[in-house]
């Protein structure tokens, strides 16, 4: 088990591209941290620096209190699960799982026992003598997990391990991986571009964008108090509504309504964020929204419409009757987030 400590860690690829801007943060022992962000934002680069597969251009990285900048991957006491599983095509499942132990001079009978145990845990016992090419996608994914588990590493690294599975299997494996990590208590860093995976699995989430860490926090914090408009729109489906508002007197004008928010020392215009489920139907409400489309999702409904010229989405319970056209809504002011209109940063 290990803590991971980043101190101004930066990655500049040989072609001069700065994939990760200097990043500093700390991962606690036993914590499950999810790195999330759009494709190309530098998540894999970050993870691969932890693994030692990419050189660290600048800064200091510590795992378990030891500076690992110059330590080879095999000596970092980590295990990694790759997106395409990276199984050795010429080895049987048994040898795939045991390969890392064999190279660490673990006695043969110990390896055999550990492999059997991991296989049982992952329902792979019947497939130990097959080659990877004879397995289904889900089974290959399990073998990759098994290879990581038997090693008893101080740190698990996952790079989008579920993105090649179909939706059903993905949901199932998501739960299994989380449960396994709980049971083994191993510090884990998990990369995904899927915000649902991030929300459901993480103890803490790190949201990245364009090589920069936008926010670090628990899923609830990220959801409730996004640090920027980027986080607000990236996390949550449907995303938070972002509306342009202007200052008027001591409050803020949104459409034809003046919100009673203390806005003394802010710019002329700001961005107001509100989650779709925080807008509630209210015949006496002050927001007049023109509903264009009603999306029926079974458990609830999504209304897509316009508030004056700005598009807006509202989330209503399934038993709430709506029709297209003008309706009235209201929103509690304590659910509102305010962001700087230019930088997109949260205004506290």
């Amino acid at each position: 088990m290990a803590v991971v400590h980043f101190d101004a860690v930066q990655k500049i690829y040989p072609n001069g591209f700065e994939a990760v801007k200097p990043a500093s943060f700390h991962i606690e022992d036993g914590e499950f941290v999810v790195l999330v962000g759009p494709s190309g934002c530098g998540k894999s680069t970050m993870l691969r620096m932890i693994a030692g597969l990419e050189d660290i251009s600048d800064g200091v990285l510590q795992i378990g209190g030891r500076v690992v900048n110059d330590i080879d991957p095999a000596d970092r006491d980590i295990a990694m699960v790759f997106q395409n599983y990276a199984l050795y095509p010429h080895m049987s499942v048994r040898n795939n799982i045991g390969y890392g132990l064999k190279n660490r001079a673990v006695p043969r009978d110990v390896i055999a026992a550990k492999v059997e145990e991991a296989a049982k845990m992952l329902n792979l016992s019947d497939y130990l003598d097959r080659k990877p090419s004879q397995l289904s996608g889900g089974q290959r994914q399990r073998v990759a997990m098994g290879r990581a588990i038997v090693r008893d590493p101080a740190l698990f690294l996952f790079d989008e391990p579920l993105s090649n599975l179909d939706a059903k299997l993905r949901n199932q494996m998501r739960i299994e991986i989380k449960a396994l990590q709980r049971r083994l208590g191993v510090t884990s860093v998990y990369v995904t571009h899927d915000q649902v995976e991030a929300m459901t699995m993480a103890d803490r989430i790190i949201v990245m964008n364009g090589g920069v860490i936008e926010q670090i926090g628990t899923p609830a914090e990220i959801y409730k108090t996004p640090a920027s408009t980027f986080v607000a729109s990236f996390m949550g489906a449907p995303p938070m509504n972002l509306l342009q508002v202007t200052r008027e007197g001591a409050g803020l004008r949104l459409a034809d309504q003046v919100l009673n928010i203390a806005a003394a020392d802010i710019d002329e215009t700001v961005t107001l964020g509100i989650r779709p489920e925080d807008i509630v139907p209210d015949p006496n409400g002050s927001l007049s929204i023109h509903v264009d489309i009603i999306e029926e999702l079974g458990a609830h409904r999504l209304l897509h419409g316009r508030l004056e010229e700005q598009s807006i989405t509202v989330h209503v319970p399934k038993d709430h009757d709506v029709t297209t056209g003008m309706s009235r809504f209201s929103m509690p002011l304590n659910a509102v987030s305010l962001f700087d209109a230019k930088s997109g940063r949260r205004l506290s």
Binding site: G52, D72, P73, A74, I78, L87, Y88
Partner: peptide
């Protein structure tokens, strides 16, 4: 595949 070699890099120090 690059990832297979990287997996080996993690599994085997020699």
């Amino acid at each position: 595949p690059r990832s297979v070699r990287e997996a080996a890099l993690i599994d085997n120090r020699s």
